[in-house]
Design a protein around this nucleic acid. Structure first.
Lengths: 331, 331
DNA sequence: ACAATTTATCTCAGCGCTAACATATTTCTC
DNA sequence: GAGAAATATGTTAGCGCTGAGATAAATTGT
C-alpha cells in the first residue's frame, strides 16, 4: 500500500530526492544520463508526484480558482471551455465553484477555494462583497474579472463593454430604419450585465432623440420559454412595435418561436434582435440577428494573460475581447 | 506577510494547535468555551486553513476529480451542475478536466488529477484505456462512471440504459402507427452512447419485424445546424419516410427548423423525435417529442452516493436514473 | 597544469497540518 | 469520596515535497 514517493524513486535511481524533484519539474540543470535513469525509475514504480506536498513546500499551488455565476445556459460553460483550453498543456488545474449570481455565495466559495492557495482566481463582474474584495486584494494573488470591462478591475478584466453592445444594438436597428423599438428582458437584479446592455440601448436610442416604445421583463432567469411568453405578453398590449431587442439569444429564440407559431412575419412585421451569438440562433429558419460575445476567447485570454506573468501589472489591465454584430435575417 | 497559520491561532487563543485543528474540522469533543475562544481568534486573524498541508498530513484530499468529455452542449454542464449541487455544503471541491471524448486524454488528465490524491473520480462511460483502468482499480479510490449503465462498472455507475431508451423510442413510434422510420445522427465514433441508442432503436424495430427505412449520419459532433442539414440531405433522396429519430435534441431541433423553413407539416407529413429533453425543445412552436435524460440527477446522485460511504461496495453498484418519454407534439 | 567558471548533484531544514497517543480534567457511580 | 468512565486538551512525529545553500565534477582559459 501507499503510493511510491520521491524517496522511493531516488533510491531506485541512485540519486538524491532533490534530483528527482528537479527532473520531475524540469527545473535546473540535469545530465541527460541522470534524467533517463530517473525517468526509468519513475516509470517502473508508477510514481505520481503528490501535489499536496509540493504545494505545501512551495507555498503555492498550480490551481486556478474559477467562480462562475451559473452553468444553466451555455454561456458560462463556453467561458469554462476557454479556460480549459488555456490551461491545457500546463500543470495548472481549474477548480470551479458556482455562485448562483449571489455575492455572498461567491464570498463563501472564495474563502473555501483560497484554502488551496491557488495561483489565481477567475471570477465574473465587478460586484463583490467587501470581504471578497479584501481577499482578492492580496498582491500575491492574480485575479481576473471576466465578462465585463465597464468598471475598475482589481488586477485584470477580460470581456466586452455591455453598455457598448447595447448602444451598438440600438444604432444598428436605427440605421435599419426601425423606430418603434421594444425591449424584452429577464430578471437583472442578478444579471447585471443584461442591465448594462439595457442602459446602452436606452443611451443609443436617446442619442437619436428616441426612447423605448414598450418593454416587458420576465421575472426570473432567461430561457427560451420565458422569451416566448414575454413576447406574447408584450404583443398582447397592442402597442405598435416594429422591432424587439431581447436581453439575450435564449429569450430571442423564444420570441422567434412565438412569431413562427403565430405566423408573425419577421422582420417585415416585427424585427428581432438578441445577444450572445449562440449556435441555435444560426439554425433558426431565419438566422437570428444578434451580437456575438466571444465567450470562449474571454476564458482563454484570461488564462493566458494570468499565466504570462506571476506578478500583477502596475496598473489594472483591461482586455477588450470585443463583440461583432451578426446581421442575420431577423432585423 | 504570510497567511496566519494554525500556530498563530493557537497562540492567540491560548490553546494547542491540535485543539484549533479539531475546532476547525469539527472533530472530537470541544468545550463550548474553548470553541468560542478559538473561533474568535480565527476571526480576528482572518485565518484560512491550508488544505495542501491538511491533505498531506491526512493523506487524502477533499477533491473530487471530474472527467467530462465535452462542455460544448448543455448536457455535460447539466451533469456538472448536479455534481456541484451534490457537493454544495460539503468541504469537497470538484476538479474538472475535459477529455474531448478521447480516452488517451482521459488517461493523461486522470494521471494529473490523481496527483492531488482525490477522494473520488467521476468519469463518463466504460471506455477507458487499460492504464486508466489500472489507475481506477485502486481500492482506496471511489469511482463513479456516469451516463450509461449498460456495462460493468468499476465501482458505481449512474445513468440510464441508452439501449433501453432507443428501444423505447422505437416502440413509442410504432405504437403511434409510424412504420417508415428513418434515423438522423452524428458521429458516434466518439459518442458511444448515441450508438447504443441507435442499436436500441434497431432492436425495437426488429422486434416488430421492421428496420430503418433510411438513415443519414453527419460526420462530426451534434449541433442544431448539423441536424438541419442532415435532415435536408435525408429528404432530398425522396425516400418515403414518415418519422425521423434524431441522435439527440440538438439534431432534432435543427430538423424541426428545416421543416419550419420548408413548410413540412409536422407530425402529419413527418414526425420528429429527439433525445435528452432539452429546454429548447419545449419552446419550439410545437414542443419536441423526446426522451428526458435526467442529467442533473445523474450528477447529484453520483456525488451523494460516493460521499455516503468512503469504501467501495462489495459488488459494483448500478444506479438507474431512468428516462421519461416526453410526448410533445412532433410525433 | 592550475585557477576560475560552469554544470551537476547533494544535504537538510521546514512548509502547515493531522493522527496517534498521552495526559489532565470533569462527571458519574455506589 | 475513591475509583471508573467520560470528556477535554496537550505532545510529538511525521506526511512528501521544495528551496537555499554547500559541495562535487566537468569544462574552460591562460
Amino acid at each position: 500500500m501507499g503510493n511510491p514517493t520521491l524517496t522511493d524513486v531516488a533510491r531506485l535511481a541512485g540519486v538524491s530526492e532533490n534530483t528527482v524533484s528537479r527532473v520531475v519539474r524540469d527545473k535546473g540543470p540535469i545530465a541527460e544520463k541522470t534524467r533517463r535513469r530517473v525517468m526509468d525509475a519513475i516509470e517502473q514504480l508508477g510514481y505520481v508526484p503528490n501535489r499536496a506536498a509540493g504545494s505545501l513546500a512551495s507555498a503555492s499551488s498550480p490551481i486556478i480558482a474559477v467562480l462562475l455565476p451559473s452553468l444553466s445556459n451555455i454561456v458560462f460553460p463556453d467561458v469554462l471551455r476557454g479556460i480549459h483550453a488555456g490551461l491545457a498543456g500546463t500543470a495548472y488545474q481549474a477548480m470551479v465553484g458556482v455562485t448562483d449570481y449571489d455575492p455572498e455565495k461567491e464570498q463563501a466559495l472564495l474563502a473555501s477555494l483560497l484554502a488551496w492557495r491557488p495561483a489565481a482566481v477567475i471570477t465574473t463582474g465587478f460586484d463583490h462583497t467587501p470581504e471578497s474584495r479584501k481577499m482578492l486584494m492580496d498582491d500575491r494573488l492574480r485575479v481576473a474579472e471576466l465578462m465585463d470591462i465597464d468598471g475598475q478591475p482589481i488586477d485584470i478584466a477580460v470581456g466586452l463593454s455591455h453598455h457598448g453592445a447595447g448602444r451598438a444594438t440600438a444604432r444598428h436597428l436605427l440605421a435599419r430604419g426601425y423606430r418603434r423599438i421594444a425591449y424584452v428582458g429577464h430578471d437583472w437584479s442578478t444579471d447585471r450585465r443584461a442591465r448594462r446592455r439595457y442602459e446602452g440601448i436606452v443611451a443609443g436610442l436617446s442619442e437619436a432623440g428616441l426612447s423605448l416604445t414598450a418593454k416587458c421583463r420576465h421575472d426570473g432567469p432567461s430561457s427560451t420559454l420565458a422569451g416566448r411568453r414575454a413576447l406574447a405578453r408584450l404583443l398582447s398590449d397592442n402597442i405598435a412595435v416594429d422591432a424587439v431587442i431581447f436581453s439575450n439569444d435564449d429569450m430571442a429564440v423564444g420570441g422567434a418561436m412565438h412569431c413562427l407559431a403565430e405566423g408573425i412575419r419577421v422582420p417585415e412585421r416585427l424585427a428581432l434582435f438578441g445577444f450572445n451569438g449562440l449556435e441555435i440562433g444560426e439554425a433558426l429558419p431565419q438566422p437570428l440577428s444578434t451580437i456575438r460575445s466571444n465567450r470562449f476567447l474571454i476564458g482563454r485570454k484570461a488564462v493566458e494573460t494570468l499565466l504570462e506573468t506571476r506578478k500583477r501589472p502596475d496598473e489594472p489591465l483591461i482586455i477588450d475581447t470585443g463583440f461583432d454584430i451578426v446581421e442575420g435575417a431577423t432585423a
